[in-house]
Amino acid sequence: MEAKNESLLEIHDLSVAFRMYDQVLGQKDLQVISDLHLTVRPGEVVAVAGSSGSGKSLLASAILGILPGNATVKGHLHYQGQELTPARQAALRGTEIALVPQSVAYLDPLMKIGAQADGHRRPKPTEKRRELFRRLSLPEKTGKLYPFQLSGGMARRVLVSTALISGARLIIADEPTPGMSLDQALEALKLFRQMADQGKGVVLITHDIDLAFAFADRVAVFYAGTTVETAPAADFRAGPEALRHPYSRALWRALPQNGFQPIDGFQPYAGALPGGCLFAPRCPYKTAQCEQSPPPVREIRGGEVRCYHGA
C-alpha cells in the first residue's frame, strides 16, 4: 500500500471496452484499452506518446470519468492512494484533476473567452487569468472574443489556461500544443514543468514527442491500447540504442530530424487484435513466442517494457 500513498495517480491493469451493436440482434464488446499501467508521482511530468488511435485520449477520459455510457472500465485507478470511484471522479474533476481537452471544439461557441476561462469560480480569478494569458502571449483583448475569432493555436492556449486556472493537483493535458509556434509551445510546456516542480503532477499526451522528451521526467509509449514501454525521458533524448521496445525506436527514427523513416504497416484495429504481442505483425525481431502469447511487463535498466526481446 505504501507505493500507492507516494503516487498521485496510479493505474493498474486498466481496460476499457465499448459495447457495440453487431449484426441485427447481438452486441459485442470492443476492447480499446487493455492491461494498461501508468503511475504519476507528485513533481512529475509523464509524457504519453504513441500511435494515433492507441487510446491516449480514452485514457484521459477514463481518469476523469467522462467516457460515454456504453463504455465499461475494469482495473484499478487510484488517486492519492484512494480508489477513484465514479462519485469521487465527479467530485474531483475541475478542482483537483483538470483536463486540457484535445479538441478546440470543447470551447463553448456562444460564450466569450474570458468568462469561459474564469468558469463558475467566485471570486472571479480575473487577475490570475490575465497573468496566464500574458505568459501564453494571448493579447489582453482575447478575453472579450468568441471562439470563432481565435486561430487554432490561440484556442489551444486558451484551453491550457482554463486548466491551469483551476489550481488542480493533477493536470491531464491531451495534445495541448498543436497549432502553437515553437516559442508558444515551449512556454506552455514550461508552465506545466513549473506546476510539476511545485509538487503537482502532469500527464502530457502529445505527438510533439521531441518537445516531450525535453520537458518530461518519464515517457510512456502507447500502442494499440496498452503501454509498450515506460522509460526515463533521458533515454529518449539519448537515442534509439537507449530504448527497450522496437516500437519506441521506430517512433524515434520517424521524426523528421532523425530520418523521417516510417515502419511499414498499421496499428491493429480494436476488435482485430493479434493473439500475442500487439506489435508482432510489424516487428522485425518477432519469434514464434511473440505470436503465441502477449509478453509480460519486464523491468530493464530502470524502465518497463512489454517485449520478450527488449534489452
Binding site: 500511435s51 523528421p256 516510417p262
Partner: peptide, 17 residues
Amino acid sequence: DEISTMLDVITQAQIWN
C-alpha cells in the same frame, strides 16, 4: 493546414511520404 499535427510521428512520415 497543419495536417499532420494530430498524427503520431510514424503516421506523419507515412502520410507525408
